[in-house]
Design a binder for these strands. Sequence first.
DNA 1: TGGCACACGTTATAGCATAACGCAATTGAT
DNA 2: ATCAATTGCGTTATGCTATAACGTGTGCCA
Lengths: 142, 142
Amino acid sequence: MNAPIVNPALTKNQALVFDALNRAEGPMSAYTILDKLRDHGFRAPLQVYRALDKLTEFGMVHRLESLNAFVACAHRESECCGAGHGHGHGTVAFAICESCNQVLEFHDHAVDHLLNDWANGKGFKPSKTTIEIRGVCEKCAA
Amino acid sequence: MNAPIVNPALTKNQALVFDALNRAEGPMSAYTILDKLRDHGFRAPLQVYRALDKLTEFGMVHRLESLNAFVACAHRESECCGAGHGHGHGTVAFAICESCNQVLEFHDHAVDHLLNDWANGKGFKPSKTTIEIRGVCEKCAA
DNA sequence: TGGCACACGTTATAGCATAACGCAATTGAT
DNA sequence: ATCAATTGCGTTATGCTATAACGTGTGCCA
């Protein structure tokens, strides 16, 4: 059966981490999350990393490689192609403002296609694709 | 041995680091480079990082964000569009084999174009774009 | 009811990156 | 030539990011 994108009943720690990421309006490092959750009983990085691993696996959180940080997924449910699970199509891309730290999440089928075509041509089997644009957002550029 | 691919008159440390990266046939972390260069007098990470900063600035080395590692640029000089300096066009992309650690460097004008179009549409001003495909290369997939 | 899978907590350690100091060499305008 | 600015260099110390390895508790179900 096809996996429903439904919240797979998060554990307490997972819920706390996910919440922290949703409240923040920008990416957070694991250690920043840890600090925000000390009042809720968090004491060690692993508590955060373990939750982040699961949330990432569920497609509810993305890791920004160029920032070593994490954001809550911005696809408010079934945006279109089931981009939650990058299975070839559905790679998510990010535009990261270096001035205000806001992140725009998007995906672009045409780009996916081109990269997949390239991979096919080379016999390369992609498992995860990272696309991150660093720059300055419209507001900050003004 | 092989003639140095001299570009902008590297300093001794820069040349050593660049050489180390060229000899290696895959990405290396800064600390791995440090270890390889201890015999040449390197003692501290900063010596490596400073050289890497410059080499990256010169376009002779790329950083792989998803790996926290570095590779020598594979464009053997003026491949085409002046991809050395990512100024909108000329973004470099990487396919990273998680089995054998080899890296394929390429660039794709069409992808650049699409991402630039997206950015223009959003008023986003890109400064650096990261594209990294993790997966398994043809050889290893066999 | 015993085994399994999984989440959790804790301590310790590994791996990646930069701050801040001072010195030496180079350049280049006066 | 001389001074000032710039750049590279070396060192020590520190901070940030991530995982290893151990043990506990809980729910499931064969």
